[in-house]
Write a protein that binds this DNA or RNA. Sequence first.
RNA 1: GACCCACUAGCUCAGUCGGUAGAGCACCUGACUUUUAAUCAGGGUGUCGAUGGUUCGAGUCCAUCGUGGGUCACCA
Length: 499
Amino acid sequence: MTDNLDKGAVTGEDLNELMRIRREKMAAIAARGIEPFGRKYHFTHHAREIIDKFAELEGRTVRLAGRIVAVRGHGKASFAHLLDMSGRVQLYLRQDVLGEAVYEEFGLMDIGDIIGVEGEVFRTQKGEISVKATSLEFLAKSLRPLPEKWHGLKDVETRYRQRYLDLIVNPEVRDTFVVRSKVIQALRHYFDAQGYLEVETPMMHPIAGGAAARPFITHHNALDMRLYMRIAPELYLKRLIVGGFEKVYEINRVFRNEGISIKHNPEFTLLESYQAYADYNDIMALTEEVIAKVANEVLGTAKITYQGQEIDLTPPWPRISMTDAVRKFAGADFAAVKTVAEARAIADKLGVKYEPKQGIGAILNNVFEAVCEEHLVQPTFITGHPTEISPLAKRNKDNPDITDRFEAFIFAREIANGFSELNDPIDQKERFLGQVAQRESGDDEAHMMDEDYVTALEFGMPPTGGLGIGVDRLIMFFTDNYSIRDVILFPHMRPAQRD
RNA sequence: GACCCACUAGCUCAGUCGGUAGAGCACCUGACUUUUAAUCAGGGUGUCGAUGGUUCGAGUCCAUCGUGGGUCACCA
């Protein structure tokens, strides 16, 4: 494989003028007996600290390490800005302080170079807190020019493929991923504090279960067997509930072999939690609480603005059944529907599509998705999903055609899904058989039969409430990003060049 | 997968009716010891995504392909 970006990296051919000049500077540095690519540098402060603690640091000597992101030369003196993890601080470099030789070495430094600086903290005449350099050290010569200082890097393809550039020049991108880290930390905080045990279950499954999605398929050589990248950790987490862990959760990647869009990446981060002796009402309360608490912990407020729309995450969130939602927004009463023909008639009238194999429940869900979802801007729980589309959820006590299940919607997007878990192994096996029949009739997203999971249920699983939260989508709301690719460091892309 | 749009200098972008490729920043040369999108004088650095085609002549028109973005479908 050749990467056109690195063409000439070894041979020295095909370099554009900007890169050639940097190579020449690198050679000039080496000719002075200095390593262009340095070694360990002991720094004492970050840029942010110089600013924040100026009162105590003024006049003191500090050591900083970071990347040069701007240079303003004035003959025998220069200004530069140094960027590190914390932010940026100005450097002031004077020939009479550094000496002629070191000042010449500064002349061999480019925007993009990573350097170590020792100097004295002071404030310039224009009032900017700065560091007057007394020594400089090359830590890494940058052989390629950075994107432009003012417009930054806008080309989305380059931003995703070379995310490091995006992070260097676009501060808000850096902020997004700091928030992402804090959100995940806050989620762990919450579940840990509630007495949940964080666990890790297999990413490679002999049977891809726990969701309706097409899996990625791989192969284990030594065992000569097909394996699936997991589409959900659900069935393994519930095995742990059978094993006696009463509260478990997992935050990690799942993989679904589906289309890529503004809302979908083939691998995404899912939080799943299970609580024994609880039901879906408990889990709804947990869901609204954890999301509001994470918002408060990370953003300092439960009122967020997403795409110009204020969204209040403060509990409690309204709860409305799927049937009631369809009655409200579509004016159709599925509670009165007794036959598939009647359901189809409603769908036809509303212009909603359905497939021949779909029953009343699936058609109801189609109508809900087509007509109701768009209205669910403020956080809302939709409950009572049809049994037909919920093969792992417990049936409602009064109506076996629906389950004790909910989905949480924010800004018309599903953000969480939970239910009272089906713990009746006889019913579970029948549901699996129903799924298998659908699979055999061509639905490759229907669930597979998982005999071992049924066996686990036969040993007895306590009544359990379960939850799944799409973590990337949550982070999209918290960082006001419209595309899931903007909250995933390295979103999936095609290779830049194909043979 | 289908449809629509985009691809020009390192970056951000212009490029009219088909007639020798442009700007700002960055970069190079020179000046400048408190600037901050530093300033001043000079310098254009390019496989116009790729390959074919039409044409006297293609960044521009046509076809195919590639990559990206958006919408739809599937999904969370």
